[in-house]
Amino acid sequence: MRLFGLKTCDTCRKALKSLPDAEFVDVRADGVPSDVMDRALARFDAALVNTRSTTWRGLSEAERGRPSAELLAEHPTLMKRPLIEADGELYLGWDAKTRAALGVS
């Protein structure tokens, strides 16, 4: 299991604490492997972009209109977090649905 996020993100820290066996991958330092990103974009598309982030608010309207793949390649911190890869399946965010799917209460 791999958890993609930011080490400064509170939600990622909560998820990592609940998933102690997960390998943490810092998207700012290490990025997301292209195969994982391609699968995540195919599954979540625009939902993968965190439109509530500080980075998003700093983008111009023209930049915001670019495809999700381009935005995330240029600004990895724009990715909604955490992105969790477990048993070939991808989960986005740390909500009750994700926790239930991963068997975490």
Rank of each mutant, 00 (worst) to 15 (best):
L3M: 07
F4S: 00
F4Q: 00
F4T: 00
G5K: 07
G5D: 01
G5H: 06
L6F: 05
L6E: 04
T8V: 12
C9L: 07
C9M: 04
D10S: 13
C12K: 06
C12I: 02
R13A: 06
K14E: 12
A15L: 01
L16R: 13
S18R: 15
D21Y: 06
A22S: 06
V25N: 00
V25H: 05
D26L: 00
R28I: 05
D30P: 05
D30M: 11
D30T: 07
V32L: 06
V32K: 07
P33K: 01
P33V: 02
S34K: 07
D35Q: 11
V36K: 04
R39D: 06
R39E: 12
A40K: 00
L41W: 07
R43P: 08
F44H: 04
D45E: 15
A47S: 13
T51I: 05
T51N: 02
R52K: 11
S53L: 00
S53T: 01
T55K: 14
T55W: 14
R57V: 01
R57Q: 09
G58I: 06
G58K: 13
L59M: 11
E63R: 07
R64I: 05
G65Q: 06
G65L: 01
S68K: 00
S68P: 06
A69N: 08
L71V: 03
L72C: 03
L72V: 05
E74G: 15
P76T: 05
P76I: 08
P76Q: 09
L78N: 03
L78Y: 04
L78D: 00
M79N: 10
R81M: 02
A86I: 08
G93E: 10
D95G: 14
D95I: 09
A96I: 09
K97E: 12
K97G: 10
T98K: 13
G103A: 15
S105I: 14
